[in-house]
Amino acid sequence: MTETSTAASGTATRPSSSGGGTGPAARQAQRRRRDRIRRWSWGIPMWILALVFLLPFAWMISTSLKPDLEAFAIPMQWIPDEPRWENYTEVLFGENSILLAFWNSVFVAVLRVAGELTTATLAGYAFAKLRFPGRGKVFIAYLATSLIPAQLLLVPRFVYFQELGLYDTLWALILPGMFTVLGTFLMRQYFVSQPDEFAEAARLDGASEFQIFFRVYLPNATSMISALAILTFVWSWNDYETPLVFLSSPETFTLPMGLTSFTDENGAMAAGLSMAAAVISIIPILLVFLIFQRRFVRAMTESALK
């Protein structure tokens, strides 16, 4: 996470430091000190800004440890006198436990990621590196479909899933999520930025197209693949609309649906429980992101997404 040194050396918006003179040691020490001051004089305001950005999450955690009615206490009390950890046990193991929803979300996300990575890398590679008649037209059609408002397809998919018996099953979320246009587009952009020469050389050596893909290009694509994995995971984990329409039985609910179930039977939102559930729902995705964060940023940089 603390990639300060590597990241800093990677960029060069620090013109002053790149002059690199060989002056006396005193001047160098002075410059170093000036640099440090400069670093912190930018760093501190940015950190304050970041904390403001993250304030809603602090509030979320604080509220998750309070009884419902204190959510709106004036003035806001950041650290509750008696933190209600039982909000968490209630959310996890109580009547409306979100564990099943949690598991459903994991199940959907894992399958979606696996499917998406498979189909998107293959297709993205083909659009970038293989020539075949109709490629341009198909790709244009792909880009056009990405403009279709998601809500437009809800009705026909609803009918369609019902006919196929997929309605109210997790497959209604998994299957469409395995073939996204955006994933293909991202992978294509990445492969386009890779040199053609590898393939040509391998072809002359008699390698088959599948071998070229699997042995030559795929191994180099790991950071882009992890970026796509993260994005797909995020899309899947946070999807609200699809489960709202395609799932109806509580045992199929994914997390976003589960979170809404803490509107209690009396119609009032149970603030403490809802926030505890929200915090729990965020943790896995935060972990995934923090673990792969560096790779993710690098992949975004390499992928010619610009």
Partner: peptide
């Protein structure tokens, strides 16, 4: 690095939360 991650966090949090 951590700062960059901090600003990205809202993007990955689910809409219900």
């Amino acid at each position: 690095g951590l700062l960059r991650a901090a600003f990205f966090v809202p993007y990955i949090v689910n809409i219900v939360a």
